[in-house]
Design a protein around this nucleic acid. Structure first.
Lengths: 213, 213
DNA sequence: TGCAGTCTTTGATTCGGATCAAACGGCAGA
DNA sequence: TCTGCCGTTTGATCCGAATCAAAGACTGCA
């Protein structure tokens, strides 16, 4: 896959409100990616950056024995794909039906100011994630996670979780059973309501905040 | 503390091999910092970057209940101090007698290429740390930690650990007792030798590598 | 509408690491 | 060299989360 390219995909469409010059017109071309479809993989040449127009992406790495660490999720409006090396050290997959556009590349053409901002964002995200993984209990981890997602969805309530319990577990460093039990605990304490596994209404966000500090 | 400044400190000396213009000559001025002395704290105005000439630094954040998460260690030759926001969100302290020089600042005067490289380094470091914290056992965490330090000391053997067991624990998300037990386990398995708590000889580094993959 | 497969929840048990406790060892200062 | 202190190691017990197991709920498809 050459630098700046989006995955080959015959289901591309034009972004709404865009001139229809199609092929040669670099930006605004949306690639549609299905659930669990791969965007890039460890070992691929890096360079391309992506913007999530709708849907959601998981970035992860696999350990030799199959254990998986999800490093980040990227929701609508967010960009991803920045890597320090010349080859990818992570996998990127869509979690639901997702639309991607090109967000430039690391090779020259993108303003270095934007790249810097992106690098700093990723640095912060990783550092915040670190704080959660290192010293928090299962309940505290889930609380921090829900607040993060809620905020990134513009305090949408109920929250829409595009990821499975497995994804959440691999992101927070715990098993799906523990994730599920933590949800149930928060439900039993009246802190949230589970409309279904993917839709979570926060009833007392302040309680969550209290939990994870 | 103004941007670009090193902590006020009456024990400054000239770096070896430097012209002696002293005061007005910005670079090469070494600040000497004692063990557990603070370089900056959460809430301080950010901007200054530092280079460790000798010694070692810990970067950490405190949770409300006193739990501490060490985010990174910085050894001789490494730079630190980059933060995304206008105020510091971490504490920086020396762990042993340490010499620091200014490594520029985030406000203009430093080449953005260097800043970008630093941001990417920090991003990688945080991501690698994430992989260790998320899904590894105590033994695997310690193995990964020792290999990291060993490499950053140029494969010096025995390794010189400038940090206490508490620091290691707060970095890896485990208690000092578990850190100590993990050291003992690696010793009993003939993988390393403890000359003393701070000096660790790696006898079979390949075994460590095997452990943490 | 019913069915199959998958994801989630809940329950029982196990286990790794935390906590509590005490002994040990190395280093600084007298 | 002796002594006291602090960091480290080791031991005993406890607890939170992992694992093993099974039931329940949702989704897509026939």
């Amino acid at each position: 896959m050459f630098a700046g390219a989006l995955p080959a995909n015959d289901r591309s469409i034009q972004a709404p409100g865009t001139a229809t010059a199609a092929y040669l017109q670099r930006p605004r071309q949306i690639s549609l990616i299905g659930p669990d479809e791969e965007i890039y993989r460890q070992g691929d040449r890096s360079g391309s950056l992506y913007r999530v127009e709708f849907g959601a992406i998981r970035i992860y790495r696999l350990h030799a024995d199959g254990r998986r660490q999800v490093v980040s999720f990227h929701l609508a409006g967010e960009t991803f794909g920045l890597e320090a090396g010349r080859t990818r050290s992570f996998f990127a997959e869509a979690m639901v039906h997702t639309g991607l556009t090109s967000a430039g590349s690391t090779s020259g053409e993108t303003a270095s100011q934007e790249l810097m901002a992106m690098a700093l964002r990723e640095m912060i995200r990783a550092q915040e994630h670190l704080l959660v993984l290192g010293r928090q209990s299962a309940l505290e981890k889930l609380a921090a996670f829900l607040l993060d997602i809620s905020e990134r969805q513009g305090d949408l309530n109920p929250i829409d979780l595009p990821m499975t319990r497995i994804d959440i577990g691999d992101y927070l460093g715990m098993t799906i059973e523990t994730v599920s039990r933590s949800f149930s605990k928060l439900r039993d304490e009246g802190i949230l309501r589970l409309h279904n596994a993917r839709s979570v209404e926060l009833l007392r966000p302040e309680k969550l905040r209290q939990l994870c500090r």
